[in-house]
Amino acid sequence: MAKLLLTPENQIQRLNTILNRVEALQALSISQLSTPPNPKSWNVLEVLEHLTIAYSSYQTKIENALLEVADSPNGAWQYQPRAWQRLVIKGQKPKGNKRPFKLKTLKKFEPLLSPTLTKDEAQAVFKRFQTAHGMFKQQVLASRNKRMKHKRFSSAIGPIVTFYLPEAFEFLICHAERHMIQIEGILAA
C-alpha cells in the first residue's frame, strides 16, 4: 500500500469495469436481483442503491473542488494519498476477490427499497446507479488534466477524514469494488 500511486487512467479503467458488470446484471431476473442471501443481508438492487447514495453524497463536494483546480501543463495527474487517507482507502479496497472486513453502514447510506420491486422499479434502480456512476466518472475525467491543488473537503462520514480529489475518487472506487464483490457473493449464495 505504501507505493499506492493514483492515476486517473487507472481509476477510469476500474470505473468502466464496474459499469460493464452492472450492465450485465441488468439481464438477470427480478428474483435474482431482489433475493438476499439471508434476511439480514441486502439484495443486488439494494447494493446498487447504496452505491448511488454513496456517489451522490460526494457529488457536490467534488464539483466544488473541481471549480478550484487549474489546468496542468504536465498532462494527467499522479497522486500519492496521505497516510491517514491511505489507511481509510485500504479499509475499503478489496484484496483479490475478498472484502478486507465488514463495515457497519451509517443510517444515511442505507438503501430504502421495498423488498418486492417490479421490473420497472428494478430498472429505475439501475438507471439511478448508471446516472450517478456516469456523473462520477465525468468528474474523474474532468479532473484529469488539472493540478490537484484545492481546499480539502470532508468525507461523507465527517471532518475526521478529509480528501483531496484523487483520494476521494479512490475511496469511492474501492468502495464500489468492495460492493461488487458483495454482489458476486449474493448471486453465488
Binding site: E9, I12, Q13, R14, L15, N16, G75, A76, R144, N145
Partner: peptide, 10 residues
C-alpha cells in the same frame, strides 16, 4: 490535447 479518445474498459 491529452483527451482520451477511447478508454480501457469501453
Amino acid at each position: 490535447q491529452n483527451e482520451l479518445i477511447t478508454e480501457a474498459g469501453r
